[in-house]
Amino acid sequence: MRRIVTQDDILEGLEALERLDPRLAPVRARAGDVPLRLSEPGFGSLVSIIVSQQVSRASADAIFGRLTGLLDPLTHDAILGAPEQVFREAGLSRPKQRTLIALSEAVRDGLDLGNVVHLEAGAAMTRLTGVPGIGPWTAECYLLFAAGHPDIFPAKDVALQSAVGHALGIDPRPGDKALGRLAESWSPWRGVASRLFWAYYREMRGKDAAPPGNLPEKNTRMVEL
């Protein structure tokens, strides 16, 4: 399966998307830099994405920074052995605490987050969303940014809904089902399309809507429903 692992892959995908849908040419022009954001797959990357659910990027960065400072190294064993005070000091909500504990238990019991990235998207999504508290958005972002899956578009992401609605003149903005159907026309490059519209949102709103920059980087450096 083709992976998005270099900036050249992003460029190839952008050019292919313009051929698939000429409306994306002005979107690309306004979006400017479309970063790769490929992270090292594993426990830390997925924890970072869980932390970023339903909070701003700045808040997610701060919480993840406190958590990694309190638990160094950040491992599933460290999470399972941590007293509740650690989670409170880090600023984690109770639901996120429960999700991190459920993830840590799953890893302890055999969930291989490194192996998951080599599965086809459907099988990988099933494996990840089988962990209590991990929904489609979290699983999709992990596969996009830790696995380089080429054809995933997190249609539940509110920033993507806003960006696509604004860029393509869709008012009101498309909901997740409508956006999912629209994104089908960008296959097999939906992973690049998602990055394009996150970059467009950055220029549209003056803020970065992609998952937080504290993801453990490999080559380069929202909302759970």
Rank of each mutant, 00 (worst) to 15 (best):
P211L: 04
L182R: 12
A29D: 08
Q161K: 07
L20G: 02
L225Y: 14
D176E: 15
P132A: 06
I79M: 10
L143C: 09
I101T: 12
T6Q: 05
I10P: 09
V164K: 06
R30A: 13
T138I: 11
L67N: 06
R30S: 09
M1C: 06
R127C: 13
L11G: 08
V223H: 13
K156N: 13
Q54I: 04
V158S: 06
M204H: 14
V55Q: 01
G32I: 04
A210Y: 11
F43M: 00
G122M: 02
A210M: 15
S59M: 10
L103N: 00
L144M: 12
R195N: 01
R19G: 00
S52T: 11
L143S: 08
P172H: 02
K207A: 15
W186L: 13
K218R: 15
L100Q: 02
R88K: 10
P73Y: 03
R108D: 05
H118V: 02
G213N: 09
G13S: 07
S162P: 00
A90Y: 04
T75N: 03
I10Q: 10
L168A: 09
A146H: 10
K177S: 12
A102W: 02
A82Y: 11
S39K: 02
L168S: 08
P188G: 06
V107Y: 01
A25H: 09
S56G: 15
F87A: 06
G130V: 08
E12P: 00
A147S: 11
P188T: 05
I50A: 06
P154H: 11
R98N: 14
D77C: 00
A193I: 04
G175T: 03
G175P: 07
G122S: 15
L20F: 03
S187P: 08
K156S: 11
R181G: 05
L14A: 06
E40C: 01
G191C: 12
I101S: 06
V34L: 02
K177Y: 12
W189I: 09
L111A: 03
A78W: 01
F153K: 00
G206R: 14
P188H: 04
T138L: 06
F145S: 03
M222Q: 15
L70A: 10
P172E: 05
S52K: 05
P174N: 04
E224T: 10
S39L: 00
D208A: 13
L11M: 04
E120G: 15
L182N: 10
D208F: 12
H118L: 11
D72E: 15
R195H: 05
V164N: 06
D208M: 14
G91F: 00
V107P: 04
I63P: 05
E84V: 09
P95V: 04
F87W: 07
A167C: 09
Y201E: 14
S93G: 03
A29C: 01
G213R: 15
A31M: 06
S104W: 00
H76L: 00
L179P: 06
G42V: 07
D72Q: 12
P95E: 03
A31Q: 07
Q54L: 13
D109K: 12
A62Q: 12
R23F: 11
A60L: 03
G32D: 09
S93M: 05
L100N: 07
D61G: 01
A90R: 02
I4Q: 09
T75V: 03
D77M: 01
R2A: 08
P35F: 10
R190L: 03
V223N: 11
E120M: 07
T68Q: 14
T126V: 13
R202L: 04
I152S: 07
D8L: 14
A121P: 00
G42K: 05
A147T: 11
